[in-house]
Write a protein that binds this DNA or RNA. Structure first.
Lengths: 206, 206
DNA sequence: TCCCAAGTGGATACCCCTGTCCGGTTCTTC
DNA sequence: GAAGAACCGGACAGGGGTATCCACTTGGGA
């Protein structure tokens, strides 16, 4: 664990507490966050809590004191990912004007890449958080951007008319299925990616 | 558990033993098999062994004596499913002559239906058993039949040229992903089914 | 420097699951 | 219908995970 991000970002997990953490507590909190990021990406959203504590070089109690539930930890980590999605959408929105299909497919491929790199990514995106934290906010921003991408692609006739922006959920789940099943080779992932993207295109008259 | 299938079919699990089971043992064995079928379909291939024993109204020891490993139990149950796949392929092969796309898509829809009805179905089909039991045999028969279906559909120009019969594995995994993720509604399943089938068709020139 | 609230981590209780042991029961054979 | 092999299932050991407790340590204000 070299070069740990020492800035302990205050999240919803302890938004209620007004007084700042003691320096050692803040350090441990950051370590736990980093370990969680790593463990979730590698092991999935159901990575053992003790494993996260172990990676952080911290006792289980310390972890639970700062993050009482798994959800608290997940939320912290997932915010990064969702934010990443929301951030990249802008780049592709710019592209959409001249290259609707490239923007549409490019963004989806980007999502699939993230998904492949992070075993917990799908859970992050699909887990609907009822509470309206930054998480949910960013998620909606990403969805709104994608909706525009879809609308542009549809009006250009490069995406099937009955495609809905919400279908992205379906595509992610499908890709997840390929990644999850035994033998999660990159080849299968890229193959299903191509198939799924093709499925988004207008159907040929038959 | 009414009207249990009392005929204790001898499977590979105890193919070595020559002398027949005692009647009470055979009865329990059949009960375990029925319970396993039910539990795997409902809970997935990782259904707890004790749960199966409980449903069978049998002690854990009895279950383990007859089926030392989970694989033995899975194999028994999966044989049914695979056999079902292999059996239905013939029906669609007949249809393929006059309606290549209908046969191709019909068979895949059939597979997806089975998958939806049985949470362990995908594991049954995708788990590659190295041993050449009846299981593997039937699986290859099903694959051979499907290959013919694919060949016929491709030569008729209704399935994309680069589609390989082995891609069915990919399609099943993708569908499984949609079923597995939270909110396994039938609607999502049929939506992804349509999308995946469309993806199998020849791509429009673009 | 001293003090104590904040913080820590190892120990622990509990739960769920797997797989085995063994004293008691039941089938089958003679 | 008695003997004994086959069989039964509750009890139990063991492994891994979650979450909590508590005696000890440490940071930072007075």
């Amino acid at each position: 664990m070299d070069a740990v991000t020492e800035n302990a970002t205050q999240t919803a997990a302890d938004k209620d507490r007004s007084d700042p953490l003691r320096v050692d507590a803040a350090r441990n909190r950051a370590r736990v966050a980093a370990a969680a990021r790593e463990a979730f990406a590698e092991l999935g959203a159901d990575a053992p809590m003790v494993e996260i504590a172990r990676r952080a070089g911290v006792g289980a109690a310390t972890l639970y004191r700062r993050f009482p539930t798994r959800e608290d930890l997940l939320e912290l980590v997932f915010e990064d990912r969702i934010e990443e999605c929301a951030a990249t959408i802008d780049r592709f929105l710019a592209q959409a004007a001249t290259d609707p299909w490239g923007a549409f497919s490019g963004y989806l491929r980007q999502l699939f890449d993230l998904q492949r790199a992070d075993r917990a990514f799908t859970a992050a995106l699909l887990h609907s958080y009822p509470e309206t934290g930054r998480m949910e906010q960013e998620r909606q921003r990403a969805m709104a951007g994608f909706s525009q991408l879809v609308a542009r692609a549809k009006s250009a006739g490069v995406v099937r008319d009955d495609f809905a922006a919400e279908d992205v959920e379906l595509l992610l789940k499908a890709h997840e299925g390929v990644l999850t099943q035994p033998g999660p080779d990159t080849e299968a992932s890229s193959r299903i990616t191509d198939l799924l993207l093709d499925a988004c295109q207008p159907r040929p008259a038959r």
